[in-house]
Design a protein around this nucleic acid. Structure first.
Lengths: 121, 121
DNA sequence: ATAACATATGAACAACTGTTCATGGTTTAA
DNA sequence: TTAAACCATGAACAGTTGTTCATATGTTAT
């Protein structure tokens, strides 16, 4: 595709480690990726996730912690459950939510690193 | 917040490594996170990124590779540039795009791992 | 200069997303 | 058994997003 181009030791074109991608993503795979990252594309969901990173919480506590209506929080939790980003357990009439695993931590760190990088030009 | 709860050695509630978050994300920080991940929340942008993971490409080549109009690709590249996910260099009337760094690789791997995990229940 | 090529951009419209509001289902307490 | 507390869900509406279409800018070739 681009094998017949003038020799380029382009400093802005990083190709350090081996790419995990060996061909263009299929539309299906791209769709799944997009759906997952789209869930992380909402500020209130990040606030909810960060609250759960501190401790498990009931829906009402969460709503108070992030200053949202309980309904709105519940709707978002439904999405976070479907994406398996949070886990929950029922205790009587309460439902305790918590983070499912630490994938979200790694994603947070990676994004933070990227955002903290200098504009460079 | 949740310190006075029955002893819970909840297996579904992971708290392995230290959390990178020590308080609920501010709305500003949450907003920046969401904007970044929102960019990764589109399937066509993932196809473009995966194409650029293979080799640097001109806009026209990209458009052909991912089967989109050149205009649509250009619009998306604008967003990917603003997010510093891609880099570019002009060569005459052509513009060669490539991935800026390998943060996107790590994010891809992390997401893939998460998506490949068993439903668990 | 003129034409053809390569890419970028603005406006507009359809599709999607997240909230609010109203309601329903469970569980505890009186 | 009522009533209250806690949470979930459906509909609807506003705001956002991504594409297409038309047009503009800049570059190479004739």
């Amino acid at each position: 595709m681009a094998g017949d181009r003038p020799p380029l030791d382009d400093p802005s074109c990083h190709h350090a480690g081996p790419s995990p991608v060996d061909e263009i993503l299929s539309v299906e795979k791209a769709q799944r990726m997009a759906e997952f990252f789209g869930v992380l594309g909402d500020p209130n969901r990040w606030r909810i996730l960060s609250a759960l990173a501190l401790s498990e919480m009931r829906v009402g506590e969460l709503a108070a912690a992030v200053a949202m209506s309980e309904s709105a929080v519940s709707h978002q939790l439904r999405i976070l459950r479907a994406t398996r980003l949070v886990s929950y357990r029922k205790q009587g009439r309460n439902v305790l939510y918590c983070l499912k695993d630490d994938h979200v931590f790694n994603l947070y760190r990676e994004a933070s690193d990227h955002l903290d990088e200098p504009p460079e030009e």
